[in-house]
């Protein structure tokens, strides 16, 4: 599985507005809905499900990264988007720091393996400091897309 297999390119946000968890998640889900990856009718249900998941424990995993996610029956394959926040989002992260990099995932309920493999893929790249630093510096969705392709092709060293 590659990042470009499940990250919806047109939905990437490089200047996410909103300093709160609620606003950040809403912005990202709306972006997926705007490009048709999730149905507009399902948008509110997906936002609510992701926020409910956050109540079980923050997906702010440290190093300025959060991976909000949910299973939802409205998708038949895993879809994800990436958002970058310039000012940082309060996410109740494990290390207490604000997050600048967000990966949001919506996966079909019957495919737990896909969710695990997407997490494996995201975490493997995030362990690479080059990837994290270049991602934080990306100013445009196109720059993020190029970085994802380089990461997928193991060109980041």
């Amino acid at each position: 599985m590659k990042l470009s297999d499940f990250v919806v390119r047109q939905s990437i946000l490089t200047d996410l507005k909103g300093a709160t968890k609620d606003a950040a998640i809403r912005g990202m889900v709306e972006s997926l809905a705007a490009v048709g990856s999730i149905k507009p009718l399902d948008q509110e249900g997906i936002i609510a499900a992701i926020l409910k998941r956050e109540e079980l424990g923050s997906t702010g995993i440290g190093k300025g990264v959060a991976v909000p996610h949910t299973k939802h029956p409205s998708v038949d394959k895993l879809v994800a988007t990436i958002a970058l926040s310039r000012t940082g989002v309060e996410f109740a992260s494990l290390d207490g720091d604000k997050v600048q990099i967000l990966f949001l995932l919506v996966s079909p309920p019957d495919r737990p393996g896909d969710h695990l493999r997407a997490l494996e893929n995201i975490s493997r790249h995030l362990r690479n400091d080059n990837f994290c630093n270049f991602l934080k510096q990306a100013q445009t969705p196109q720059a993020v897309i190029e970085l994802l392709e380089e990461a997928d092709n193991n060109q980041l060293g």
Binding site: G62, P112, R117, E120, S123, R124, L126
Partner: peptide, 12 residues
């Protein structure tokens, strides 16, 4: 490390 453990993708 959360990232390290996530990268194991340990299934059931």
């Amino acid at each position: 490390s959360i990232l390290d453990l996530m990268s194991l993708a340990a299934e059931q």
